[in-house]
Amino acid sequence: MSKMHLKLTVNGQAEELRVEPRELLIHVLREKLNITGPHIGCETSHCGACTVEMNGKSVKSCTVFAAQADGAEVTTIEGLSPLGEMNVLQNAFREHHGLQCGFCTPGMITRAHRLLQENPTPTAEEVRFGMAGNLCRCTGYQNIVKAILAAASEMNAAKEAAE
């Protein structure tokens, strides 16, 4: 089977590489592009550790073929803080102990980022529903929900102050 020429944009940077169509997006990101923020947890689309944004949607990159991402805009956790500084969500996760081992955190924050884009003022219940595709085996979720709600408040306060 022939390799294909894959063109995609990852964290704002145009990338071109040759891949087999059967390669998964998570493997291309981690092994070919050295973008190791998204993790491989279950590799069966249950845990959400591999969550990235593709064309403005949160997707589990273990269940997307690289070929499907041809022409796509992909954003990983690295792309959410391009200057290397912690963003509001990352800080909120630290402040509110939204992580313990940290393995699920890149997926959690990438998903939470999209959730807050779509719903900037979620209730705790909406956060739980919107984060249901990401599993955490350490925290019991309580502090993850708190962190996301705190980040939402902070983002909204900053938006109001700017207006």
Binding site: T51, V59, T63, R111, F129, M131, A132, G133
Partner: peptide, 9 residues
């Protein structure tokens, strides 16, 4: 159906 990530796809 499923979860948010899966529903996008």
């Amino acid at each position: 159906i499923a979860d948010p990530q899966v529903r996008y796809c």
